[in-house]
Amino acid sequence: MDQHLDKKIDEAMQSLDGIEKASPRPFFFTRLEARMQREKSRWEVISSFVAKPIVAFACICLIIMINVAVILSSANSKNLTDQQNSEQATADEYNSLSAPLYEFVNSTP
């Protein structure tokens, strides 16, 4: 049984000995050229669309708008943090002034 199985496995392992090389269907180069042309024309359509003055102008406007929005939002947040800082400073100052008075009042018999 084992010998029979080993023989079958050996036969399968040797089944690719002397294999002939496969080749593509005729006119491979013609099909390749047609595909390259298709891919090229697809990129040409995309690049010609992007290169249109109106599209380029719209893209530049969009980029400028995004930049302005980012600058404005960062300026707002800076103002807000400045305001928060001054409020915090006032609170700290008030605490440092009032604490000794509070302690003084509490410490008196």
Binding site: S15, L16, A22
Partner: peptide, 19 residues
């Protein structure tokens, strides 16, 4: 079925390709 395999080896080769 590889087109370059000899006819008598076809079945064995198909099994080998599966492996």
């Amino acid at each position: 079925f590889h087109p370059g395999v000899k006819v008598e080896n076809k079945e064995n080769a198909a099994l080998l390709f599966k492996a």
